[in-house]
């Protein structure tokens, strides 16, 4: 038996939130959503910065791999996941998840294919430029990537929840 101790902790957050005043839950939610709408242009610019980081790092990929560009691609993908879906690019979210999983798989199983990484970055560029209504082209790109994930036994990212994006 390890020497563990249980401590009762006062929930200060709960006490604070129950103070008189404030706003209703629905007002809070609407307030947040309104503010998020206002920064959507900044987020789109951020998305393009992530893609640019990926492209630059992809130019430095080698075989056998150098960890620096691979880590940068992983970080840019991870950053992209944070907001691509919030600005309607759910497909980019799916590709970024797949790319992170692929890099994790390569690292864990000592495999490598710079082509498999590059095809994801090409797909990201393509999906960013597609019209939001072009579901058919988007599905074709994603289907191609799903084959790559399958080839390297990568855990498939969850499909995008909405058709658009």
């Amino acid at each position: 038996m390890t020497d563990s101790r249980n401590i009762k902790v006062k929930n200060r957050l709960g006490e604070l939130m129950r103070q008189p005043g404030g706003r209703s839950a629905i007002e809070a939610l609407r307030g947040a959503e309104k503010r998020l709408d206002k920064i959507s242009d900044d987020l789109l610019r951020g998305l393009d910065r992530c893609i640019a980081r990926m492209e630059t790092a992809a130019g430095q990929l080698t075989d056998p791999p150098d960890d620096k560009p691979v880590t940068e691609i992983y970080r840019a993908s991870n950053d992209m996941i944070a907001f691509a879906g919030l600005v309607g690019f759910n497909s980019l979210d799916e590709v970024a998840h797949g790319l992170c999983e692929l890099i994790d798989t390569f690292r864990a199983e000592n495999q490598w294919s710079d082509q498999a990484i590059r095809v994801h970055i090409d797909a990201v560029q393509l999906l960013r430029g597609l019209s939001k209504d072009d579901n058919e082209a988007r599905e074709r790109v994603l289907d191609g990537l799903r084959k790559v994930w399958s080839l390297f036994s990568v855990r498939q990212p969850l499909p995008t929840p909405e058709a658009a994006g």
Partner: peptide, 30 residues
């Protein structure tokens, strides 16, 4: 009703957009 007007929230995120999303969200919550 929720009152977060006096809440002290710390957000740590090195990504500019990630930080922006969270600060705007919490501002909306009050």
């Amino acid at each position: 009703r929720i009152n977060l007007s006096c809440a002290e929230i710390l957000i740590a995120d090195s990504n500019r957009e990630g930080m922006s999303i969270l600060t705007q969200m919490f501002a909306g919550f009050g």
